[in-house]
Amino acid sequence: MISFIAKLIVALNSNSRPSELASGIAFGFLLALIPGGNLLWIVIFVIAFSLKHNIAAMFLSMGLFRSFISVFDPLLDRIGGIFLASPLLYDFFTALYNIPLLPYSNFNNSIVMGGLVLGIILWLPVFFLFVFAVKIYRKRFASRIAESKFVKAIKKVPIISKLTSSVQKLSVLAP
C-alpha cells in the first residue's frame, strides 16, 4: 500500500504524462464499478494492465472506489435494467448471449451492465478531470507543497518518513 502511494507521489512529481495518471484512475474507477468474478472484468483488467498508464493509480483508485461503490448498486441495477430490457438492444444482446464464452462475462446481469455503461460514460469525464487536476497540481502546487513548513513537519512522522524514503528510492530509480 505504502509502495503504491509512494509510486503515485513519484508519478505526480515526475515527468510522466498526466494522461497516464488520469487513465489509471479512470480504469480503476471502471473496474470498481463492475462487479468482479466474471469474464468482462478480467478482460477489462487485462486491457487496463497492458496499457501504458500508472498502475499504482489504477489499483489505488480501484480500492478507494470499491470501498463505497456498493452504495450505488441500486442505481447500477436500474441503469443496467434499462439497457438490458431495452427493445432496441434486444437483438444485439440476444446475439451476444449466443456467442460462445460471452455468457461468462455476465453482461446480462443488471449490475454488471449498469457498471459497464456508467463506467464507460464516466470514463472520459474522470480522465479529463484528473488530467486537469494533475496539470494544475504540477503547475501551481507541487513546488509550494514540497517546500511548505507543514509538509516538512509532517515528513518527520514515522509512517510519513517511511513513505518519504520509499518515494526517494523510487525517485532515484524513476526517470
Partner: peptide, 18 residues
C-alpha cells in the same frame, strides 16, 4: 457468500438462445 462481498446480486436477464 456472494452477497457477503458487499455487492448486490442484481437481476439476470435471460435472452433467447439454445
Amino acid at each position: 457468500e456472494k452477497k457477503g462481498l458487499r455487492r448486490d446480486a442484481g437481476r439476470v436477464f435471460i435472452f433467447p438462445g439454445s
